[in-house]
C-alpha cells in the first residue's frame, strides 16, 4: 500500500504539484495521465522519494518514506525512467546486474546471477548479454533497463510472473514506478512493455504506478487511471469513470470520439 497525503512540491515559487492526496493498492496497475506540465513525472519522483516535497507525507505501508534509508528502500522500490545513457562501455549483463546491487555486498551471490539470467531471458536480451549497451538501439536499451529494474524487485521465492504463490505480508510490498518509459518505443514495444508490466503487477505484493502518454494504451492496461492537470489530480478511477469526452476536452483541449472495440471496450480517436 502506497499513500501520499497533501503533497505539495515547489521549485522556487512555482508549485509543480499542489495538495495531491492519492493511494495505490498492491496487485493493481495505476497509470497517471495528463497533458505536458501536469506534474505527472514530479509526482512519480516524489512517490519514489527522489524528490522531497515541501509539505505532505509519502507512506510505504503506513511508514513515512523519509525514515527509510536509501539502501533499504532500494531493495523494494525501483524506477524505470525514460532513457538511460551511460558514459562508459558496459555490457548488457553488467547493466542488468546493477538491479541486484542493493541486494549483495561486493560480489553477486549465485541467486543474483540467476535472477539476472532469468530477466535477460524474460526480456529477450540474452542473445546480446555481452554486447556493449552503448551500441544498442533505443528499444533494446529500454528492454535492458526494464530487465534491470525488475531484477531489483525480483524475488525467487515468489515468481512474480506466475499468478500463483502465497500472498506475502503487506509489510513486504514492492513498488514499481514507471516514469514515461514508453516515450522512445515503437508501438509494438509499447504494447509488449505494458503486457509485461501487467504480468508483474499481478503479483499480490506489487504496487505499480506509471506515467504514460497514450490514452488508449492507458485505458487498455490500467486498473486505475489518475488524471492530472495543472499539478492537481482531477479524476481518479477506472478508465470508464475517468475518460469522459467532456473531461478530455477540458484537460487536453482535444475532442475525442469513442469507437467501440471488441477486446478493450472503447477506443479513442481525436480530431
Amino acid at each position: 500500500m502506497l499513500d501520499a497525503s497533501d503533497i505539495t512540491f515547489r521549485v522556487g515559487d512555482k508549485a509543480l504539484i499542489t495538495d495531491v492526496s492519492v493511494s495505490f493498492a498492491p496487485g493493481r496497475l495505476h497509470l497517471i495521465i495528463g497533458p505536458n506540465g501536469a506534474g505527472k513525472s514530479t509526482l512519480i519522483k516524489v512517490l519514489a522519494r527522489l524528490l522531497r516535497p515541501q509539505t505532505g507525507v509519502v507512506r510505504y505501508e503506513g511508514v513515512d518514506a523519509r525514515h527509510a534509508s536509501e539502501a533499504e528502500l532500494a531493495k523494494r522500490r525501483a524506477v524505470l525512467s525514460q532513457a538511460v545513457e551511460v558514459a562508459f562501455p558496459l555490457t548488457v549483463r553488467e547493466v542488468v546486474m546493477m538491479g541486484r546491487y542493493p541486494h549483495f555486498g561486493s560480489r553477486p551471490a549465485p541467486v543474483d546471477e540467476k535472477i539476472t539470467d532469468e530477466l535477460m531471458e524474460f526480456f529477450d536480451v540474452t542473445e546480446f548479454a555481452e554486447r556493449n549497451y552503448q551500441t544498442l538501439s533505443g528499444g533494446e536499451r529500454q528492454r535492458v533497463n526494464f530487465a534491470r529494474v525488475l531484477a531489483q524487485l525480483w524475488r525467487t521465492d515468489s515468481p512474480s510472473h506466475a499468478q500463483h504463490g502465497p500472498p506475502l505480508a503487506p509489510a513486504s510490498c514492492r513498488y514499481l514506478f514507471l516514469d514515461e518509459p514508453l516515450t522512445f518505443l515503437d508501438i509494438r514495444h509499447q504494447i509488449e512493455f505494458m503486457k509485461k508490466v501487467r504480468v508483474f503487477t499481478d503479483a499480490p505484493d506489487v504496487v505499480t504506478v506509471g506515467v504514460v502518454h497514450d490514452l488508449n494504451l492507458a485505458a487498455r492496461f490500467a486498473d486505475q487511471l489518475v488524471l492530472m492537470d495543472g499539478g492537481r489530480i482531477v479524476a481518479n478511477g477506472s478508465a470508464a469513470e475517468v475518460l469522459s469526452a467532456e473531461r478530455i476536452r477540458d484537460v487536453f483541449g482535444v475532442t475525442p470520439t469513442f469507437v467501440p472495440v471488441e477486446q478493450s471496450g472503447v477506443h479513442l480517436i481525436f480530431d
Binding site: A74, K75, S81, V84, V86
Partner: peptide, 11 residues
C-alpha cells in the same frame, strides 16, 4: 555510470 538519478534509485 547509469546516471545520478538511477544510482539514487539503486540506493
Amino acid at each position: 555510470m547509469i546516471g545520478e538519478e538511477e544510482a539514487t534509485y539503486l540506493g
